[in-house]
Design a protein around this nucleic acid. Structure first.
Lengths: 341, 341
DNA sequence: GGAATTTGTCGAAGCGCTTCGACGCTTTCT
DNA sequence: AGAAAGCGTCGAAGCGCTTCGACAAATTCC
């Protein structure tokens, strides 16, 4: 392996000079810099990460804790993870992948071993075990998600409440007066991740203001689960003319079932979703949707964490404004009563 | 931060003794070990990763290169990544997440900086730029996937050829004589990742032996894409009575379309898939499938790479045997000609 | 024109750990 | 009984880098 010393010797300067060329922390004459850089290129030198971390006590690594669970919509996690990795690289950081498995111990391990300079946590619960540790940690952390008490922490998330409100407005604006919400699996609510509840709050509040009746049902993502939920919904509220779906796995089955029942979308019934754009656009009926901006969330989280590392930082909650895209699945409330075939 | 020296002092031994307690590389009396371990627990000591890496020239990190692309079926990637992270942790390793973005440069960087002890590469192309570098590298690597020339490399993958053969056998056994293969998007074939072609080879060969006619069509994963492909298939081969789908995004649309056309699965037409078990089990008709064992692949890759790191290793290709699970989507060839409504 | 400042470079001290050789002690062998 | 071997511990060297203080040389100041 080529070391700093090798480069120094090759360039005819001292080791510290090479180090300063690399870090730019002291001024270096143009000629020396050129010579050193040529030597680096010629020898194919790469600084040893361990040595660097030891000497500088910065590893240039950001830890990313992702959930193990598979009941969340996986592509969103993946998209976030990739955005994190890509953005981090752009700032000179690598990403260490931790699974939720280790739980709070992972926070302690990272903190203690100085493996990473900072952490990004996904799948944050309202009362997350990891938060107390994170608050005491000397290394900065950023959450993707919003816990019950975000004080002393940085958080990035979609403004799900606003997203819910936006859905209510859109449908109310089209004349709908009875809306059903097809929610996440019951397990998601039980886990208290918060985002599903926040959406619901936004939906409820705005619906109330707009005089719209709302029915909410959690729903398993399987075809059978959606069928059962749908049946119950029409049973309880036969006058339902619009659906809001916050459950990625349920959108396709829902559309298929409605079609099967002879209810045309959007003529007889409107459907809108809160999901990644890609999913909405490629559904069998392109869905009017509020997008879950996975990439933006990952990017923001990294930028926040890097800002904190560089001291130009702050705790604080960043809620991304929701954006509604109108596609083909929503329309005015049908004039005649809906009559399934 | 608590250091080794602090622990040593607290326990009344030398630093090297503490180190040997930690590593177990020299024998330590039971009493000393107990004392040191108590001090470690009491002080909450965690070895500094950088120092350790520098002194031992082992980082206990495995790099995982995942593709940036989003045209592959993401849950499989994610499942592999999580399996890799979990298995690695079980062996005392952490996982560094690299995206394909950096390409071959990433291999050089990891190698040069000693950031990781080994690498696992996903999304391997038949003629992958990274392979020459990997062959020369001093650190072991394992591929998930199978390149054109695997010599001097370790590879883990599903035996897609056998998987294809298995599908042909199953359908032929049920009496089908005309099979259509709904393949991956054309882009996947163009990228020369190999797995799609290998499946096709297996299908073709075994079909030939069994006297079954095979039609293969690449297919976009969208609803519209599947509709177009399906139309073309029935146009060219009206006698088709069975489908093999190797395209996770196409399974649901295909089932929906067949239903819409009044073709009952499996009474009028059989459908089987090569996809993760979960997807097959939760489709609107539970699918007979050959599972893509994402977890196993991740686990095997880590075990292979760890074995290499510990010297009880070997290059070599590990092809996982495919497993067929019969569910509800395949049945005997219909006796009467298929008559779509 | 000499003092004060800035610029560019170097040497040396460490960062916290692993590991090697050494050493005293106990056990085993013949 | 004495030599050989094994056990348990320690001290010191060194992994490759960053960073601080020092110091000549070049520049600026009144």
């Amino acid at each position: 392996m080529v070391t700093l010393a090798d480069v120094a010797q090759h360039a005819g300067v001292s080791a510290s000079t090479v180090s300063y060329v690399l870090s730019g922390k002291r001024s270096i004459s143009a000629s020396t810099r050129a010579r050193v850089e040529r030597s680096i290129a010629q020898l194919g030198y790469h600084p040893n990460a361990g040595a660097r971390a030891l000497a500088s006590s910065r590893s240039n690594i950001i830890a990313l804790m992702i959930p193990l669970r598979t009941d969340m919509y996986v592509p969103v996690m993946m998209e976030i993870a990739i955005a994190v990795a890509t953005t981090a690289r752009g700032h000179g950081y690598d990403v260490l992948l931790l699974t939720g498995e280790e739980g709070p111990a992972a926070v302690r391990r990272i903190e203690g071993s100085a493996l990473a300079d900072a952490m990004i946590l996904m799948d944050v619960e309202l009362e997350d075990d990891r938060l107390p540790l994170l608050r005491e940690a000397t290394r900065p952390g950023v959450l993707i998600g919003l816990p019950a008490d975000p004080s002393g922490l940085s958080c990035v998330d979609l403004d799900f409440e606003a997203a819910g409100a936006l859905c209510a407005e859109h449908l109310a604006g089209l004349g709908h007066r009875e809306i059903a919400v097809i929610g996440e699996a019951a397990a998601v609510y039980e886990r208290h991740t918060g985002f599903a509840e926040r959406t619901l709050n936004g939906l409820r509040e705005r619906s109330g203001e707009l005089g719209v009746r709302l029915l909410h049902r959690p729903c398993e993502g399987s075809y059978a689960g959606v069928a059962a939920t749908l049946a119950r919904v029409y049973d309880e509220r036969p006058g339902t003319t619009a659906f809001v779906v916050q459950n990625e796995a349920a959108t396709d089955p829902l559309l298929a079932l409605l079609r099967q029942q002879g209810r045309a979308v959007p003529e007889d019934v409107s459907v809108m979703a809160i999901c990644p754009d890609q999913l909405a656009a490629h559904a069998s009926v392109p869905l009017t949707s509020v997008r879950v901006p996975a990439q933006d969330m990952g990017r923001h989280a990294v930028e926040q964490v890097v800002a904190k590392l560089e001291g130009r930082a702050t705790d604080g909650v960043v809620l991304l404004a929701p954006e509604l895209t109108v596609r083909e699945s929503t329309g005015p409330r049908p004039v005649l009563p809906v009559s399934p075939r």
